[in-house]
Design a protein around this nucleic acid. Structure first.
Length: 878
RNA sequence: GGGUUGUUAGCUCAGUUGGUUUAGAGCACUGCCUCGACAAGGCAGGGGUCAUCAGUUCGAAUCUGAUACGACCCACCA
């Protein structure tokens, strides 16, 4: 069959993916083999593939594919996350566009709409993962709102409640005024912003002509002020402690208290205390038994405490109240300052502190074993530096606010009785039984129980992911969880180390008394070529689908992996995909060359001993590189793995080996050489397969006829078996000779087409004799003569300690010849001197390891030989 | 404020416990080459006082300290 001129990625990719699925190559069931399990970090069900997903999922695919080829039972579990805030917002907006208000719907109706929406639009990302070549077990797709998953989350809640870890309490929490829900500390991010510092005057009760000036960034919160506070040591204000002042506008009388929390030098040294809207103020309020006045509605507008500002948004009030204060003469001045504000991770609006009753989970007990696991290396983080970050967070862990005022999510399994009693149970029926027992009253009916309307934080379901995808909580002790858990590698972004990774470790030990995974590989952040994060607002995100269409999934995978150094960010640009495409083209052309031999009858039945050396050389080179590649894999350094495979294929196989064995003119290639070449090609395809699954599968099949189930995807991965280092060093003489002759031709302007004769002066000429055929072929040599010294003004090259003489028909420039040799002589002498300096240093000879000493001696004798050869050459020239 | 981390060629990065040459790769750049796999290519070449200073050592890109600039994380700011 005629090969096409170039590789057609689109056809090949859809063809092979379909075949892989048809033959169930990605499916996994427990068996006798060693399991190798990865659970995907579940993308939001609303999500679409972006460049970060490509990096993350390609890495997982590489690990999974390699493990599969190494004979392990590879299982990659895919799925999506219900992402309660994001999805609820999307569904609500969608309904609105249809003229339906969420407020008009019952809980059940809304959920029905949400599930319908999810069925229709959700999970696009999973089909996009397939386009990327991800070898997930698609029979195991999980969703965090699946029936078993929902049940597992509820069960875990009840279990933790019964243990006393989960409790209900009224605390100051982070409030998202747009999503109208509580948030955990992790869902708030801080950003430096330009803002104004307002200096507001508070009149003193005792002397209505005097005032205290308070510097605040939030003048709209004065309605919630319940004290002023100064440092007890502050000489300016000492006499006022215990007195009172009036809040401007509303003229409420508030006490002036003291606390050493106040920094004398900061602002005016006077703090207005607003316990309902600030964490530190809240603490002060508790300590000094102050009133707490909530001035905000849930949506961020002021409530009736805000008097004539009631109903207006906090930011509008801030501007208006400044004007009013100014008109009243109570605004001393304003200053521009930089301060940091907390924003909602989901809606990106400024978060408010709000006092409200919520559900919390006490994490302190769970943190113990989780911290221990990372400290003692039972779980390894890559790069290891993240262990410090992890430890710091774990040691300072705070209670987790797990309730959300939303509908889309697992509803909290808590029921309230009329008197405020709380019953927590997996179902209403069990809750009723518990309520009856609790009150010793069998007349309580289901109607007396009111279920908490709130749902759980999405992360309260995600933290069970490695367990519940195998139904380890809803159906404990089943065959899957016993076989696949703990999983092997987790590949994720460092941003969610606290959100997710740390919590999975805690839940693993809490629910299964076992770690969830052995290694955690943190990818870097993918940035554009200017080092900026990809973001919607910058509009710099590449369209992944277009890139795949243009370059193919393999090239995209190549592009993103080659630029992803271990432990730091990835700078991505489209030209990297181009490099991937060039690479594919190179491999394709190697295939074409080999096919040409077959089709052109270039294969000879008889053996050819002249091709023994290239085969031996490549075998050793391959093994040497394989050793390095395995080392980089062990270090999770995938870009270096790929770089090495790339150069092994491009430089060593195509650039050197194929050129060495390529039949010229009427020559033929021995069938043994041909078979060795096919074998090498196969080994290379296997090495590359985890990175570029499609092109390798395509060539795997083009290379020879195969049985129906013979796929590169399940071929046996190459095994390192050692190599002959002295042999490889010896053959450097040949590559050195070839390169030097080419350089000489280049510099002398002598065309590669001009053939010439070679004289080689060498103590041991055997290596040159073994490679003579290749030498003649690669640098166009008509004849090689050994140790037959030739008089005359000829070019001389020094190969290690050997001398190579090239006679030309034309005159050569003796002067430049001498100059070149002198330069080399000078360099080598300098080098020898540095070696001698070391060797004549007694302390070096005494202290250095014997192998290093040996190396230095080898360097010395090499350099001396070389100097002698150069000097001989110079003598003959003079 | 606490912590982590970085600074090596024009760009992106390697450089293993200090000693494989007087520091490497890819991309970019320069020259030559359409020669029967491949111009999406081949062959060759130029380019770095390893951020700065001091120290340890027989020996430092590598270890220590300081300085400069940068990145990130946590806490937090009236």
């Amino acid at each position: 069959m005629e090969l096409s001129k170039s590789y057609e990625a689109a056809d090949s990719e859809s063809k092979w993916y379909a075949q892989w699925l048809e033959h169930k190559l990605f499916s996994s069931q427990p068996d006798d083999r060693e399991p190798f399990t990865i659970v995907i970090p579940p993308p939001n069900v609303t999500g679409e593939l972006h460049v970060g997903h490509v990096l993350n999922n390609t890495i997982q695919d590489i690990f999974i594919r390699k493990a599969r080829m190494q004979g392990k039972n590879a299982c990659w579990v895919p799925g999506t996350d219900h992402a309660s805030i994001a999805t609820e917002a999307r569904v609500t907006a969608h309904l609105k566009s249809l003229g339906i208000e969420k407020a008009d719907l019952s809980r059940e109706e809304f959920l029905a709409h949400a599930f319908a929406w999810k069925e229709k639009y959700g999970g696009i990302i999973l089909s996009q993962l397939k386009m990327m070549g991800a070898s997930c077990d698609w029979d195991r797709v999980n969703f965090t709102m699946d029936e078993h998953y929902y049940k597992g989350v509820i069960k875990s809640f009840v279990e933790l409640y019964d243990k006393g870890y989960i409790y209900r309490g009224t605390k100051l929490i982070n409030w998202d005024p747009q999503a109208l829900t509580a948030l955990s500390d992790e869902e708030v991010y801080f950003k430096e912003v330009n803002s104004k510092l307002y200096y507001v005057n508070y009149l003193l009760k005792d002397n209505q002509n005097e005032f205290l000036t308070v510097a605040t960034t939030r003048p709209e919160t004065i309605f919630g002020d319940t004290a002023l506070c100064v440092n007890p040591e502050d000489e300016r204000y000492k006499h006022l402690i215990g007195k009172s002042a009036y809040v401007p506008i509303i003229n409420r009388q508030i006490p002036i208290i003291s606390d050493d929390y106040i920094e004398i030098g900061f602002g005016t040294g006077v703090l207005k205390v607003t316990p309902a809207h600030d964490k530190n103020d809240y603490a002060l309020g508790e300590k000094h038994k102050l009133r707490s006045i909530n001035i905000l509605n849930p949506n961020g507008t002021l409530n009736s405490e805000g008097k004539h500002y009631s109903g207006k948004d906090r930011f509008i009030v801030r501007k208006e109240i400044a004007k009013e204060l100014e008109s009243l003469g109570m605004l001393n001045k304003t200053e521009d300052i930089q301060n940091s504000n907390g924003y909602s991770e989901r809606t990106h609006v400024v978060v408010e502190q709000r006092l409200s009753p919520q559900w919390f989970c006490d994490m302190k007990k769970m943190a113990g074993p989780a911290l221990e696991a990372v400290d003692n290396g039972s779980i390894r983080l890559h790069p290891a530096k993240f262990a410090n970050t992890y430890r710091h967070w774990m040691e300072n862990i705070r209670d987790w606010c797990i309730s959300r005022q939303l509908t889309w999510g697992q509803q909290i399994p808590a029921w309230y009785l009329a008197d405020g009693q709380i019953v927590v149970a997996e179902t209403a029926e069990v809750a009723l039984e518990k309520a009856k027992r609790l009150n010793n009253n069998s007349t309580i009916s289901i109607d007396d129980l009111r279920r908490d309307p709130d749902v759980l934080d999405t992360w309260f379901s995600s933290w069970l992911w490695p367990i519940e995808v195998f139904e380890g909580i809803s159906n404990p002790g089943n065959a899957d969880i016993n076989y696949y858990y703990p999983t092997q590698v987790l590949v994720t972004a460092p941003e969610i180390i606290f959100f997710w990774v740390a919590r999975m470790i805690m839940s693993g030990y809490e629910f299964l008394q076992e770690k969830p995974f052995e290694d955690v590989y943190f990818t870097g952040i993918v940035r554009d070529e200017l080092g900026r994060k990809y973001s919607k607002s910058l509009g710099n995100s590449p369209d992944i689908l277009k890139l795949m269409e243009k370059y193919g999934a393999d090239s995209l995978r190549f592009g993103i992996l080659i630029a992803a150094p271990a432990g730091s960010d990835t700078l991505f640009k489209e030209s990297l995909c181009d490099q991937g495409r060039h690479f594919i083209n190179k491999i394709w052309n190697a295939l074409k060359l080999i096919k040409m031999w077959e089709d052109g009858g270039k294969i000879a039945e008889t053996g050819d001993s002249a091709q023994v050396e290239p085969i031996r050389w490549f075998e050793n080179t391959f093994q040497k590189k394989l050793e390095e590649i395995e080392r980089f894999y062990a270090d999770f350094n995938l870009s270096e793995v790929l770089t090495n495979i790339y150069s092994l294929i491009w430089d060593d196989f195509c650039g050197s080996y194929l050129e060495m064995i390529k039949p010229y003119n009427e020559d033929k290639i021995a069938v043994s050489t041909y078979q060795a070449t096919i074998r090498f090609f196969e080994e290379l395809l296997k090495l590359l397969h985890p990175f570029m699954p499609f092109i390798t599968e395509e060539i795997w099949h083009q290379l020879k006829d195969r049985a129906e189930i013979d796929f590169c995807t399940i071929a046996h991965y190459p095994v390192y078996s050692g190599y002959d280092e002295p042999y490889l060093r010896e053959s450097e003489k040949i590559t050195d000779l070839i390169a030097k002759v080419r350089t000489m031709r280049n510099e002398g302007g002598i065309s590669p087409k001009v053939p010439f004769k070679l004289y080689i002066q060498a103590e041991n000429s055997q290596p040159y004799r073994d490679w003579e055929k290749q030498i003649r072929q690669l640098i166009n040599i008509t004849e090689v003569e050994y140790n037959g010294y030739n008089e005359g003004n000829f070019r001389r090259l020094i190969i290690k300690g050997d001398e190579v003489i090239i006679p030309f028909e034309e005159e050569i420039d003796v002067e430049s010849e001498i100059r070149t040799l002198n330069e080399e002589l000078e360099y080598t002498r300098g080098f020898l001197e540095s070696v001698n300096k070391k060797l004549s240093n007694e302390r070096f000879v005494q202290n250095a390891k014997s192998e290093i000493l040996e190396k230095e001696r080898q360097k010395k004798s090499d350099a001396e030989e070389k100097i002698k050869a150069i000097e001989d050459s110079l003598k003959r020239l003079n």
